[in-house]
Simulated scan of single mutants.
Amino acid sequence: MSTILKPENIELNQTLSSKEEAIRYVGGILHSEGYVSEDYIDSMLEREEVTSTYMGNYVAIPHGTENAKKSVLETGLSVVTVPEGVDFGDGNIVKLLIGIAGKGDEHLEILSQIALVCSEEENIQKILDAQTKDEVISLFSEVN
């Protein structure tokens, strides 16, 4: 996880006003850090129209559509905390956004690691309470 989740990929205590803004924000990190080309962000929004990336427990995992694989330059993650929450529709409030870009099938392994961390509500709270980016990285690293 440490190679795909770096301090530059994490933003703590953000305020985002809409689902679209939230998805563009996590996608923008993936783009600015060189994991995806800019059109990947549009495919993340497309994916959200097809099926919500809200996972429960205040977590959403925005990612691109299957067709967006060509836009992935390198496997990477972005993590954004939104303590005030952002409405993902149907009353689903998201406080932890995890953007994913995976080369080939690498995203499946990443998703399973994220699922392990996020299946525990106390881990989600620890991420939301994190004061440093290193705290977030260590929480994700513990599952290896």
Rank of each mutant, 00 (worst) to 15 (best):
K6T: 04
P7Y: 01
P7K: 05
E8D: 10
N9F: 09
I10P: 02
L12Y: 04
T15I: 14
S17Q: 14
E20A: 14
E21M: 14
I23K: 04
R24F: 01
V26Q: 08
G28F: 01
G28I: 05
I29Y: 00
L30H: 01
L30Q: 04
H31V: 14
S32E: 15
Y35A: 08
E38K: 15
E38T: 11
D39C: 06
M44A: 05
E46G: 06
R47M: 10
R47T: 05
R47V: 03
E48M: 13
E48A: 13
V50D: 11
V50E: 13
T51D: 13
S52N: 09
T53M: 12
Y54W: 02
Y54K: 07
M55R: 11
N57C: 11
Y58H: 06
Y58A: 08
A60P: 00
I61C: 06
I61M: 13
H63E: 14
T65Y: 05
T65A: 14
E66N: 14
E66W: 14
E66Q: 15
N67R: 13
V72D: 07
V72Q: 11
L77A: 12
L77Y: 04
V80L: 11
P83K: 11
P83C: 06
P83H: 08
G85T: 03
G85W: 01
V86C: 07
D87T: 10
D90E: 15
N92E: 12
N92V: 09
I93F: 05
V94M: 02
K95G: 07
L96R: 04
L97Q: 10
L97W: 02
L97D: 06
L97R: 08
L97C: 10
G99F: 04
A101D: 06
G102W: 02
K103G: 02
G104W: 07
G104Q: 11
L108Y: 03
L108T: 05
E109G: 12
E109W: 09
S112F: 02
S112I: 06
A115H: 09
L116G: 02
V117A: 10
V117R: 03
E121R: 15
E122Y: 07
N123A: 06
N123E: 07
Q125E: 09
Q125W: 00
K126N: 09
L128P: 03
D129V: 07
D129Y: 08
